[in-house]
Lab assay of single mutants.
Amino acid sequence: MTEYKLVVVGAGGVGKSALTIQLIQNHFVDEYDPTIEDSYRKQVVIDGETCLLDILDTAGQEEYSAMRDQYMRTGEGFLCVFAINNTKSFEDIHHYREQIKRVKDSEDVPMVLVGNKCDLPSRTVDTKQAQDLARSYGIPFIETSAKTRQGVDDAFYTLVREIRKHKEKMSKDGKKKKKKSKTKCVIM
């Protein structure tokens, strides 16, 4: 069974824990209790493949930012979460993405942009803004509501699919490099 290491990042209060708990335990946590770091595991079937999701729910508070490099190193894919009623959390996505790329030393890291709290009427981040940002990053965008469960499975499952595509691409690139290195030079 394939294991996928997913990391949920975003500013404090955007609903990272609520999304994760909704996926794992099928219930909505409405009281806000700032996370330092929590880890969850769940076995699911995605596109006919049974897999184990190892999900790291991270601290959004700035005082825990020193811990970010460590979990970013171990993560295979990242859910970059903002709240649709919090423009600052949307603007912060850029910083999370840049930090992930720096730590992973790669421009090509599996990510999904997630606009959470889409059940709320007080939207300050337009869907088109988020779609445009995701398009500019070359990553999928999904709106979710941890409260109603809308888009929750889709967000995590899409990230797994992005990781699969990335692994497939990397193995193809690896095979191309191996083929090239088999060419021999004969000096007579």
Rank of each mutant, 00 (worst) to 15 (best):
T2I: 09
E3S: 02
Y4F: 12
V9H: 14
V9D: 01
G10Q: 02
G10W: 01
A11K: 14
A11Y: 06
A11M: 13
G12C: 07
G12T: 09
G13P: 12
G15E: 01
G15C: 01
K16F: 14
K16G: 02
S17P: 01
A18K: 03
A18W: 01
L19N: 15
T20Q: 02
T20Y: 00
I21H: 04
I21E: 02
L23T: 15
L23F: 11
L23D: 01
I24S: 09
Q25G: 15
N26V: 03
H27T: 13
H27S: 13
H27Y: 15
F28L: 01
V29S: 06
E31K: 02
E31S: 03
Y32M: 13
D33A: 02
D33W: 02
P34Q: 02
I36Q: 01
D38I: 00
R41F: 02
K42T: 11
K42H: 12
Q43N: 11
V44Q: 12
V45C: 12
I46F: 10
I46V: 11
D47Q: 09
G48P: 08
G48S: 10
G48L: 04
L52A: 13
L53Y: 11
D54R: 01
D54L: 01
D54V: 01
I55M: 07
I55D: 00
L56T: 12
G60N: 01
G60R: 01
Q61C: 13
E63I: 03
Y64E: 14
Y64M: 09
Y64C: 13
S65P: 10
S65G: 08
M67Q: 13
M72D: 13
R73P: 14
R73M: 11
G75Q: 08
G77Q: 02
F78V: 04
V81N: 04
F82T: 07
F82V: 08
I84K: 13
I84S: 14
N86Q: 08
T87G: 06
K88R: 13
E91Y: 03
D92A: 10
I93F: 13
I93G: 04
H95M: 04
Y96P: 03
Y96V: 15
Y96A: 13
R97C: 15
Q99P: 01
R102L: 08
R102S: 06
S106W: 10
E107D: 10
E107Y: 11
E107A: 07
D108V: 05
V109P: 04
V109C: 08
V109Q: 06
P110F: 02
P110S: 02
M111W: 07
M111I: 07
V114I: 09
G115Q: 10
G115I: 12
G115L: 09
G115E: 06
N116T: 15
N116G: 07
N116E: 15
K117R: 12
K117I: 15
C118V: 08
D119F: 13
D119E: 08
D119T: 14
L120S: 13
P121T: 09
R123M: 10
R123A: 10
T124W: 06
T124Y: 07
T127V: 06
T127H: 05
Q129N: 06
A130Q: 11
Q131R: 08
D132N: 07
D132G: 06
D132F: 08
A134Q: 10
A134I: 11
R135G: 11
Y137H: 08
Y137W: 06
G138H: 02
G138E: 09
G138V: 04
I139G: 10
I142V: 09
I142G: 03
I142C: 14
E143D: 10
S145V: 05
R149C: 07
G151R: 11
G151P: 15
G151F: 07
D153V: 07
Y157S: 11
T158Q: 10
T158L: 10
T158N: 05
R161G: 09
E162T: 11
R164E: 11
K165E: 05
K165F: 05
H166A: 09
K167Y: 04
K167M: 08
K167G: 04
M170R: 12
K172N: 08
D173I: 07
G174V: 08
G174L: 11
K176N: 13
K180G: 12
K182V: 06
K184L: 02
I187H: 11
I187L: 11
